[in-house]
Simulated assay, not measured.
Amino acid sequence: MSVTALDPATALVVVDLQQAFLGLPGSPYPVREVLDRNIRLAGAFRAARLPVVLVRVSFAPDGGDVVPGRTEQPRPALSYPEGWDAPIPELHEPSDLVVTKHNWGAFHGTDLDVQLRRRGVTQIVLTGVATSIGVESTARAAFEHGYHVTLAVDAMTDTDPEAHRGSVQRIFPRLGETGTTEEILDLLAKSR
């Protein structure tokens, strides 16, 4: 695990760290710790005048935009409390880009790629929940889109520690560089 560099045009992309998931029993890191690390990263990116993108998952009340298809696991209920898909106020600033997705990954069916390319972004630092679902899907697509991918592995968590570990140890090193929040903050400070 080592982050070697941050491009001059790097964006922080936070996946699914939204109201509904604050109560998740994150593993290996509690969601509150992950949120605190993301708040620090977002503040540093904003101070460096680099984009912060908050990706949220949301569905229409009638479920019309839920991805179809057969699965072996039951789909989540379509009845969500008001505001479940809202960004977390402590993390969100008006200058942030907010991207709404209806799939696991943040690229398919959204304008994320267009928004990043308009800003000249060549690298993304990924964080969020769940490591093995939304974050991994977004990391795979970012790699396929040609971005340099950096994954802040202590600023993400999962509901399953084995799934988190599998993504971090087996998948992420094939898609980019992995490191800690502190490593990324240090690189940001050195680049200013």
Rank of each mutant, 00 (worst) to 15 (best):
A155T: 01
V135F: 07
P76C: 09
Q19G: 01
Q73A: 14
T122K: 10
V55P: 02
R32I: 15
L151I: 02
S2F: 07
I124F: 01
V99E: 01
D154K: 03
T110G: 01
P51I: 13
V98R: 02
V129I: 15
G63E: 11
P173M: 11
E82Q: 11
A106T: 01
P161L: 07
K101N: 00
G176C: 09
R37M: 14
G128V: 13
A60N: 09
R49N: 14
P8D: 14
R165P: 04
L187A: 06
R170Q: 13
E144Q: 13
F143H: 15
G120Q: 08
P51N: 14
R170W: 05
E93F: 13
V31S: 06
S79T: 13
P94E: 14
R174W: 10
A42Y: 05
T71K: 05
E93D: 15
R170F: 12
D160Q: 04
E72I: 14
D113M: 10
H164Y: 15
N38I: 10
N103Y: 01
A60M: 07
E162C: 06
A11D: 06
V34Q: 10
V98M: 03
V53W: 02
K190A: 15
V114W: 08
L22M: 12
R70Q: 09
G166T: 07
I39M: 05
M156E: 00
L188V: 12
V114K: 06
S132G: 07
L185F: 09
G176Y: 06
Y29I: 12
G83Y: 10
F172Y: 14
A141N: 00
P8W: 05
A106P: 00
T131D: 04
I88W: 12
V53K: 02
A48F: 09
G120H: 08
G69K: 04
P81Q: 06
V99F: 09
A163T: 10
R170K: 11
G146V: 12
P25A: 15
T71Y: 10
L175V: 13
D160V: 02
P74D: 14
D96S: 13
F172L: 14
A20P: 02
L188K: 04
H92G: 06
D65M: 05
Q19E: 13
A86E: 15
D186M: 06
D158P: 00
F45H: 11
T159Y: 04
E183G: 07
A42G: 14
T138Y: 00
V99Y: 01
L24A: 15
A5Q: 07
H164K: 04
R170D: 11
D7S: 11
R192D: 09
E183W: 04
A163D: 12
A20T: 07
P68Q: 01
L97H: 04
D36V: 06
G128Y: 05
F59C: 05
A47N: 08
E33C: 08
V57Y: 00
L116W: 07
L151W: 04
P173F: 12
S132Q: 05
